[in-house]
Design a protein around this nucleic acid. Sequence first.
DNA 1: GCCCGTTACTACAATTTCTGTAGCGATATC
DNA 2: GATATCGCTACAGAAATTGTAGTAACGGGC
Lengths: 101, 101
Amino acid sequence: MKRVRGSRSGRPIMALLDLLGRRWALRLVWELREEPRRFRDLQAAIGASPTIVNTRLAELREAGLVRLDEAAGYRLTELGEELLRLFLPLHVWAGKWAKSI
Amino acid sequence: MKRVRGSRSGRPIMALLDLLGRRWALRLVWELREEPRRFRDLQAAIGASPTIVNTRLAELREAGLVRLDEAAGYRLTELGEELLRLFLPLHVWAGKWAKSI
DNA sequence: GCCCGTTACTACAATTTCTGTAGCGATATC
DNA sequence: GATATCGCTACAGAAATTGTAGTAACGGGC
C-alpha cells in the first residue's frame, strides 16, 4: 500500500482526505462523473495549469481511482465510481447550501 | 451569497468543491465530526500551521458550516452536520479502498 | 496589583505549490 | 511535408503554506 502525503497515521480515511483535499482533486473526479474526458478537455474545463492537472491525475491513477483509456480518455475506475456515488448527493445538497448563505 | 474562489460559474457545486478542495478544509470538517474542539487542539491534531488553520476556519465559518462556540470551541453548524452526514460513509469506503491498492 | 496559564489569532521570512506560457515527441490525416 | 491532436514537460513568476514567534484578552490564585 502506497503512503500518501500527510497520512502519518496510516489510517485510510486520513490518506483519503489528504488525497482529495489537494487542489483540483475533488473537482477532477467530479468532472469525470459522466463520461471519459481528454487531458486537454479536462484542463480547459477546470481552468488549471497542465502541470497540476497532470500531477493530480497521476496521483488519482496511483490511488486506483482514475485510469487512462487510450481510446476514450481519462475515466473513473470501478473504485473511482464507487467513490463518486458517495459524492453524488453533494450536488443536491450544494443547492440547498447556496440558498441558505 | 458570497462568491468563492474558482466558482466563476456560480454553480453551487463548483463553489462547494472549491471550498472543500482547499488544503485541510475537508480534514477540519472531519475532525469536528464528534465534538467541539479548541483552536490549538485542532491545529495540533491535523499538524498544520496556525495561519492556515485560522484561514480555513474563517472560510468554513463564512460558508456557514462551522461556528465558534466560546464555551466549547469550534463546532459544526446544523448545515455543517448535514454535510458531514454525506461524508460519513467515506470512513467505511476508505477501509475498502486501502485494502485494494 | 501581579504572575501564570489559557484562549484565539497575527506577523513574517523561508519553503512549497501552482500558474501561465511555450514547447516536445508520438501518432494520424491529408 | 504540412497540419492537427494526443498526453505531457520545462521553467520562471506568483501565490499558498509552513514554522516560529509573539500579541492581546480573559480568568484564576496570591
